[in-house]
Design a protein around this nucleic acid. Structure first.
Lengths: 223, 223, 223, 223
DNA sequence: TATGAATGAGCGTTCATTCAT
DNA sequence: CATGAATGAACGCTCATTCAT
């Protein structure tokens, strides 16, 4: 974490250590930024809070990320990268499209639940009308993967005569994402509104069942 | 010295120019706060921005709302009240449950699209883990109305043998709200992600069709 | 305390009640001001804190005392008046000057201990270089009484051949006041400095003995 | 980001212009704070007044002292340190205890007269019930020196058969401090009260004589 | 006699950022 | 590669006070 306390050495042998230490500093700042932006939003998450959380110094943030917006862009890229990385591990059996679809739903709902920073940071970015994501080129490529997985499943399902052939993968992606995202994103106001604790495992589990049923009903050809 | 709520004067003779001016001040601050919080979030929406927008003074915000949090609570209550007021105008023909459901979906999706402040302010409140809404008692009553409308529609549909009888109104409320909310809330990151402009009327219209189809497919008994 | 909630009556009979209520308001503000100024000083004791403590309104302070300085002048006069009133109750037997002197010392030390507001408010006034007391005419007359009592005691003691005849009453007044005042006024820093709790009854009692001894040693003719 | 205490640089080569400038900034803030707190008290002495007096910026106060309270603690430590430093220069001839005692009295009375900030700042701290001094460890050690000097003098006097052996140095310290402090601290209200200008050199000189006489009378064994 | 509404200046503090070395 | 020093603007909030009835 807080490497870089070592004194400046003159021997070139130690350069490797310093580079590694520098990376560690950069990484700990990034991790701290995710935590802080997630909790306080962009304007509420101050440079000071972040550097303190990272046990580093304000100045280092400027050193590695230029300014606050640069740091936020890096944060955005990182959370998308993490989501993509997790999704890539989904081993789907395309021969069983219904099971694949259930797995995808399960993955998305659980990822959202277990990574609240993903949701709050995307909300922050949307509050700012997406002004950072447009600066980033890397994020765009991730959509391919996310929708590609659904596309393949739908194609397989249609080929087997199980799924309607006229359903667009983009709509199914939005459908699942909506149902997973809104539930998590708005769980505090919803809890007050509905008088029901959406954070309880039972309520969440019931919701997953409902989502699965709904997606399959809109996909599957009735017989 | 916070102003007493509503400031009901006992002698109606005195309900003169100043009281009217006072109400106007309070209201213009509230309206400005909705605008500013909606655009910048709670921490980004400064007292100064708000009082300037309201063409009033910082001090008056404290006079009428105590502090920034008090103002935010009032803002929350106001946007819920407005939603409720709009919903109350929905004239549903319960004899035709399918049409009713289409109307409800139409109303919610369009309300979210036309009132982006509703979404951004709720996101801000959820970022803060619902710490303001719990202080407010008035908001809770609004959920009754919102779900009540769906409940009646589902009952009518079930009575007529059109809708499945085992679907919970709360789930249908969450289903529609999710699909309307996420689309609007995340339209900027989604636009970058999907490479498609979700703000275009055509894309929105297609989405409304998809949502309607999905809701009805999950509700209606196949024949 | 919080009279003045009664509705405005048109019958002149009740005028007495209202005047009394007004006095009560004035008095409760004065009492609150003593408490607040004593605790927070002049600049730290805000109009708002005072009106809140008095369960009255800011505006009433201006109504009765003109402004903050006017209120502080009234406070100064009040604490001097109270001291004078208490001192007037001292029944001294001038035939026994030593006992009289012991009584005076006892009275002053205990008055300071039991009325910390007297000390803190005088300190505030001295911080401001006595700018309020010069506006007040009533306070000056009180010194007469305070020193007069000592004067009579010294005269009696000198007449009886017990006290030195060349000691000035003003010096004895300053001597006793210094020893009583400093002990109370600086008891917090002294406690930290000396590592001894000056608020304990035993330590205070020992101090009273020392003061009495010192005053009498400087007064009495050795035989 | 509060500055580290004293900022001792490890490589002496770097102790350059900026470090010296930094020390100057810190010191000029401290000096300004003493002046301003002395004149207006803690709550009346605003950060703005101080930074303006120091010809620095608000921000630097927070940089070097954390917050206003931190600055006040530093101010307290500084005025105690200065008193201690001055006292350390007192060259006493312990072989002549009476002369030593006269010198101590002289020193204390004149120090109080010539350093009014010492008195007003201690009054401010006592108004706040000693809440800052308890945070400071350095001040406690100063009491040792102050009382130690008196202790040695008393011991020498007792050894020579001049002073009573049963007098506690702490009491003599309090006696002298009281008589010097109260005279200065309350000189404005006393001047109004007594109708005599305590700031005139003659009156002060007479007071010093009276104090000296009083202290010696309570100390010395009558023959 | 009493009040709610309004005001502009100031409060202590934190903001993101740049400077010089 | 890293840091201590510095900056001006903004933050949420409170100040004593006056206005109009």
């Amino acid at each position: 974490m807080t490497a870089k306390k070592q004194t400046v050495s003159k021997s070139p042998r130690k350069t490797g250590v310093r580079v590694r230490a520098a990376l560690a500093t950069r990484e700990s700042i990034l991790r701290a930024a995710i935590k802080v932006f997630s909790k306080y939003g962009l304007s509420g998450g101050s440079i000071d809070k972040i550097s303190r959380t990272a046990r580093s110094h304000d100045r280092m943030i400027y050193y590695y990320f230029g300014n606050k917006d640069g740091l936020f862009v890096a944060v955005l890229e990182e959370i998308y990268r993490r989501f993509n990385e997790a999704e890539a591990k989904l081993a789907l059996d395309l021969e069983d499209p219904e099971a694949s679809m259930r797995r995808i739903i399960h993955f998305i709902l659980h990822y959202y639940r277990d990574h609240p920073e993903f949701i709050t940071i995307l909300n922050s970015e949307n509050l700012l009308r997406g002004q950072h994501i447009s600066k980033s080129s890397t994020t765009k490529q991730y959509s391919m993967a996310a929708i590609g997985v659904i596309d393949q499943t739908l194609l397989s399902g249609a080929r087997q005569g199980l799924f309607r052939p006229d359903v667009r993968p983009r709509d199914i992606y939005l459908l699942i994402a909506s149902l997973g995202y809104f539930y998590q994103s708005n769980r505090f106001t919803l809890t007050a509104f509905l008088g029901e604790n959406l954070e309880s495992p039972e309520v969440f589990s019931e919701w997953e069942d409902f989502v699965t049923t709904t997606v399959l009903r809109t996909l599957m050809i009735a017989r």
